[in-house]
Design a binder for these strands. Structure first.
Lengths: 225, 225
DNA sequence: TAGAAACTATGATATTTGTCATGTTTTGAT
DNA sequence: ATCAAAACATGACAAATATCATAGTTTCTA
């Protein structure tokens, strides 16, 4: 099995502050897990005994609402950690994690995380900073949700997906999401998301080939947000 | 000036994990500040050189939107800390803090906070847990905003205000907010908030005397949320 | 305590968004 | 390659919410 010491993802999160010896310990007890598109990694209300680090693929954090739909709170790509919040505050998860495409995760047991938080101040400080940043992001999202229209929010998500996950040589967004998934992120009805994307096509802001989306006029989109 | 060692508010936040000696240090360099209703404690985009701890009164964190209205993200009462997020991640604030009524705050310089985070593991772990809890709260709020109606959100805010800040002997909510402030918390137009509260009155769920609000039928309200 | 300013109230109307229905296209498994 | 399932598309309509206008009430201050 591959070792944490050589893992590139590590550079992207708090693990980068661990010492060689600490990394060796993590490496020794971590396990790698594979999930297919649509697989549930953990469910809302579960107690986690460890955290997950994304090696490849993309996951989403979602919450089921009263009316049966679910809302996507966050997308997570390479290097990002799942479940650290629940493990740190020792609560059950308030969100489910689902694989958006085939995904490879490293699972690190809870006690490893907690031990190094206790023992390595740089590590805990880095996690502290990450949480602070996440919190700021959540506040910003909340305000967006409260103050912006569905069209504006969808625009921002398109730009975010391009910036975060990139596009292929032809310009199509590398991360392919269904209209339903876009709706779940934006917090609207699937039909509304479809309608707005159709309008964007007519306006020449985007083009599509099946589920694939290509941003044709980034500046035009930005003008909406 | 009063000392931190005897401060009751301390019990309510991470300061409770500081040692006697650490508390003495904090106490030695803290200052107490008074603000009147409506005063700005700090502004969106400011760099903070310290954090604030609420001794008495209530503050709100708000963000100005493009259309000139502002959205209230959080209310803060006795013992709660303002600005810790910005100080920890060493970023400018993304929110403004405003006094909702006359308020007394303790100001603790940044370096005190950071020194004790570095030096006292229990302290930094407690702040970590608090941030994790705040993050969960922000995620829950985001989902509420996305999935619930204005009426449901307003109901929840009324119940929250009663549970958090209590009511007087006659049952009126101790924290008096204008309809505009309720609208800003809920994320709606002031007229919508007024209309819904009027409806609640007609339905016997609440009663009002001027700006004062009294919950008459808690169960009825809960049935809406 | 009078008067101004702020706040509350409510109607009329416009806009945004959601829901339901129905048909077409794309995708993926055999 | 074919077929069923999933996803996309669009119209018609309903519901929720915002906006504008206007008037009454409360609060605060001089």
């Amino acid at each position: 099995m591959s070792k944490c010491e050589q893992c590139i993802s590590r550079q992207l999160n708090s693990m980068k502050t661990l010492t060689t010896e600490e990394l060796r310990q993590v490496s020794a007890c971590k396990s790698t897990r594979f999930y297919k598109k649509g697989d549930v990694i953990f469910d809302e209300g579960e107690s986690l005994n460890g955290i997950f680090c994304v090696r490849s693929g993309v996951a989403k954090l979602t919450k089921l609402s009263a009316n049966g739909k679910d809302h996507t709170v966050k997308l997570l790509g390479k290097g990002e950690l799942l479940g650290q919040r629940s493990v740190i505050s020792d609560e059950r998860t308030n969100l489910s994690a689902v694989a958006i495409n085939d995904i490879e995760l490293c699972y690190v047991p809870k006690d490893q995380l907690l031990t190094h938080i206790q023992g390595n101040n740089a590590f805990s400080l880095d996690i502290l900073r990450n949480l602070a940043t996440d919190l700021r992001g959540a506040e910003d999202d909340l305000i967006n949700m409260a103050q912006k229209s569905v069209k504006q929010r969808l625009t921002e998500v398109l730009i975010y997906v391009q910036n975060t996950f990139g596009h292929d040589s032809e310009g199509y967004l590398s991360l392919v999401l269904s209209r339903e998934e876009y709706a779940s992120i934006v917090g609207t009805a699937t039909e509304s998301a479809i309608r707005i994307l159709s309008q964007f096509k007519k306006d020449g802001l985007i083009s599509t080939t099946g589920k694939q989306i290509k941003i044709e006029n980034l500046e035009g989109l930005k003008r909406i947000g």
